[in-house]
Write a protein that binds this DNA or RNA. Structure first.
Lengths: 129, 129, 129, 129
DNA sequence: GTGGTCTAGACCACG
DNA sequence: GTGGTCTAGACCACT
């Protein structure tokens, strides 16, 4: 469902949250679809049910999920607004794969590439402001 | 010096560490160059001196920094091995900027782009293994 | 019949119970009158029939309702003791409406007004004891 | 600090939340002031520290509190916007005390008065819409 | 069997 | 010592 990295320093609940958000954006989870139950998801990704519940609740507050007591957890209809069109997401993924190939060849670690991306993201933001 | 994000969930000391590592890789900090004192760096980035000291110590253990009592902290000569050649880093940065522009246009957040990169990085690794 | 607030945190069955009690007190449900069947009430307020049945049973235990198999559910005669006289309830409602108007104008939420009322209720009780 | 009712059915974390919100609105907690530490508050009101932490976090998200790791928890400056002026809050409290006196005399319970207030609040809202 | 609340208690990041 | 994350596990509300 979502792959976690227990040693990245990023809290697992944030990784799960981002992972679910991303799967919705990429259209892998579609509006109306049900997510694994809190307990099942907890088993799948190997965390405590409370941690999953916290994530689901946060995503509910954000309007992406709908938690129904006694029924389960579902992607809301309004989440559709967040789904990226294939023509938006595909070029991004293509470029990302190129970046990854180059970074690997240069001996960079994922964390370092992440930091680079972050630094450039903020430069870019600061320039445009 | 290094820009921190207090709300990303990543521990400040990891961000600092990665940030310094990255600046060395990009050649912005060159072998022999001195870093700000622990206190000055602490002021600059707004954290407790203990935190900076911890980071410097860790980077020393890693061989990137050299702490000279009474003099200050310096990038080691051996750190040169980690510096990326301009022809390595430049195309990576160029592609990253393109990715960032596209992601922004598509309404993705930095954290989401980071998760995407991570997912693709791991896909790629799994395929090649 | 009774309006529920799914997001107040108060269990639905307690809201239903209090709601029916209040309608009896206000004289909107009079002794002898029939209530909707369990299923009809469940449909009306959008909960599971089990939940309504539980409420009716509890109010029967309390002596406010009488469940007659095959006939339906009725307000008991003895419930009359709980009905407030118009001269009792009307000034209360009038003041409540004033309080509500003032609170709205001051930007308070219902939950906050409720907490205020509760705090003052307890102050008052503690003083008189 | 905040008085809880363990038997009202309202989750204690909501009671705590509302209680703190109310104390800020009434000006009993002023911007810049520090709240009891998570653990101290937990002791005071007799709940688990996690529960207090959840409340503080929620109020932070709402902009009323500022949680500083290693330092403590504080009322934000922007919370000032939520503080009610004495000329706003005083007439409300005065009327509430009258309502309480009348309700007591009529034999109503706090929960019933609360339900009445809620019913009238929603009537009022529906009329004005 | 689903989500929701709460407890007890461990370990971590930070000042 | 402060807040933050996470676990294990109990009990409750609801379908």
């Amino acid at each position: 469902m979502v792959q976690l990295d227990r040693y990245s320093g990023v809290p697992v609940y944030l990784q799960l949250e981002e992972g679910i958000r991303l799967r919705i954006q990429r259209g892998e989870l579609t509006p109306g679809q049900s997510l694994p139950t809190v307990r099942r998801m907890a088993d799948e990704v190997g965390v405590n049910p409370n941690t999953v519940a916290r994530v689901y609740r946060e995503l509910q507050r954000e309007g992406l999920l709908r938690l129904e007591r006694g029924l389960g957890t579902f992607v809301t209809e309004s989440a559709a607004e967040r789904v990226l069109a294939p023509e938006e997401i595909e070029p991004i993924e293509k470029l990302c794969r190129e970046v990854i190939a180059l970074s690997r060849r240069a001996g960079m670690a994922l964390a370092e590439l992440g930091r680079l991306l972050e630094a450039l993201w903020k430069e870019d933001r600061d320039e445009s402001s």
